[in-house]
């Protein structure tokens, strides 16, 4: 307030006061609902604090014990957190590779003046549609269709493609493929639209001069389109990666929270969810969140630098 008064003396009429009034709700809400919980999450990660049945344990300060427990091997000899992180990355890559390849091809096709594709509006509207479908409902649909007694199995058996119904949800490859398929379907349309905007933002005269030079479409793609698309491509990739690390709804609903088979489709956020929903283990959950935050930050930086360096010249 003192600030605005000072400015008021300098100018004839100052409206600076209004700026603070207009932005204050944003900051109050941010502090209460985001900043304080974030700091509390970090604080929690240094405490033992959970429910053992109906009995509350802690909070007791335990230093880095939560981190140590998360990063040391459990009874089975594997480090659960790393296993789940590996699952999460595998699931993301499995969906993101086709997502970006196909989106790139579609974006080039849609923007090609030579191909001059008709009915683009409708096609784009349809391929973007899965992005708006509730992930949990879409997963439930895939489950109902692909379950052992579901219509897909019935069709495959009736048409003689397989002899007896196949339980898609008990085999690692098929569960992961279904999750990847869902993520692919939900996101390739979005990526296509983003990349199209990127291609259309490229200076058209570059394409024209390449044509005069006699470059063919493949040369144009690798020499002009792809390098100039890299900034927006890396942006889309990083966003997708950050989203992928937070993968939850699809594997949670598809496997009923169990990450079948043998926890090979359990993601990091599913682990976080288990800590929060069952034993209210705020200490462990806090440590998972902090690690997640660090990894997200590092990965974004790496991917961004990698792509930037590769296409600098």
């Amino acid at each position: 307030m003192a600030e605005s008064r000072r400015i008021k003396h300098r100018k004839t009429v100052s409206y600076a006061k209004w700026a603070y009034i207009f932005i204050i709700p944003f900051f109050i809400s941010y502090i209460i609902f985001t900043l304080v919980p974030q700091l509390l999450t970090i604080y929690n990660s240094f405490f033992e604090n959970y429910m053992n049945g109906l009995q509350q344990i802690g909070p007791n300060f335990v230093g880095l014990a939560n981190y140590k427990a998360l990063l040391s091997p459990g009874q089975s000899g594997t480090i659960d957190l790393l296993k789940y992180f590996g699952n999460t990355m595998a699931l993301w890559i499995l969906g993101a590779v086709p997502q970006f390849l196909i989106a790139l091809m579609l974006a080039v096709i849609f923007t090609s003046a030579r191909l001059n594709i008709k009915g683009q509006g409708l096609a784009k509207a349809i391929i973007y549609m899965p992005n708006l479908i509730m992930a949990s409902a879409f997963s439930m649909l895939i489950f109902a269709l692909f379950s052992k007694v579901g219509p897909i199995n019935k069709y495959l058996v009736a048409s003689g493609i397989i002899e007896q119904s196949f339980d898609f949800l008990t085999v690692k490859v098929s569960v992961r493929s279904l999750i990847a398929l869902l993520n692919f379907l939900m996101w390739f349309g979005n990526t296509t639209i983003v990349l199209m905007a990127g291609i259309m933002g490229i200076d058209q005269s570059l394409f024209e001069s390449a044509e005069i030079d006699g470059s063919n479409s493949i040369q144009v793609f690798f020499d002009i389109t792809l390098p100039l698309l890299m900034p927006i491509m890396s942006y889309a990739l990083i966003t997708s990666l950050i989203g992928g690390i937070q993968m939850f709804d699809v594997p949670q609903v598809l496997t009923n929270g169990r990450g079948t088979p043998n926890l090979t489709s359990t993601t990091v956020i599913m682990m976080l969810n288990n800590f929060l929903s069952g034993s209210k283990n705020y200490g462990r959950a806090g440590a998972v969140s902090v690690l997640l935050f660090i990894v997200t930050g590092i990965l974004s930086t790496i991917v961004y630098r990698m792509l930037a360096k590769q296409y600098k010249d």
């Binding site: 304080v36 700091l39 950050i242 969140s289």
Partner: peptide, 9 residues
Amino acid sequence: IPSQVSAVG
């Protein structure tokens, strides 16, 4: 900052 970081708190 991903939203899950604030979820626990």
